[in-house]
Amino acid sequence: MKNFLALVFTLFLGFMIITALSNNEAFPKYGEADVSTRVSQKYLDRSVNGNPGEIIFREATNLESGPANTVTAIVADYRSFDTLGEVTVLFISSLGVALLLGSTKQRRMELDFHPNFMLKVGSRALFGIILMTGIYISIHGHLTPGGGFPGGTMIASSMLLLYLADDEFRAKIKGFKILESAAGSAYVIIGLLGLLIGSYFLENLLNNGVLGYLFSAGMIPIIYVLIGLKVGSEISGVIDNFLTEESV
């Protein structure tokens, strides 16, 4: 009975959402969004603080926001305060997992199966490749899709591979904590430097260079590397907390 009521309720709610959206004359149909009436047009043209004219790849210099990837420009430059909040969410989640599951003396959790020797050795070769991919994506966030968050997750998944392939492996958690704390504090300190030296919190202080080169976009690659390291170490800490238990 309860399942039937829930089904009726959700069907009714879905139907209501669809009719409300199709009767809404201001809500554009799928595929017909008019970007020029939205805030994003100025993000695409990099013309929030003045118009630079047409932007050509590898020729435009010192735009107000340097990355060739406009999504990175929004995440790390125009709306970087949201990114600070997001970094804080991950920080407090990993801290919460450590609070809930942590204890003083720990060892790996006992499982029913034991991986064999070939798996242990082969995974070490794969670990390096995954780690390199994660670092590449994290550094090239301003030129290709990706950035700090997927890069950090790939770094953490290389650690997960080692944990799954070897049931006696434990990484150095103390090192992760120091890395996480240092990267997070560095991000806030960069913001405060912007307040002291420039005039706004989280202002981009370095020169924005030529659009499309690796060394361009001011501080954004630095910020993305910090975020990648932070995310990687946090998620590795979460993995470690889940796969250990109290030792007798």
């Binding site: 993000y43 790849f57 060739a68 949201d82």
Partner: peptide, 27 residues
């Protein structure tokens, strides 16, 4: 097109999709 300047899509006069919802989804 995807909102990234590359050596093929190298000018800002082309039609791009809206990048702001993509940034919101990242968060």
């Amino acid at each position: 097109l995807a909102p990234i300047f590359t050596s093929v899509n190298n000018s800002s006069n082309l039609v791009f999709v809206d990048p702001l919802p993509q940034a919101l989804v990242l968060t």
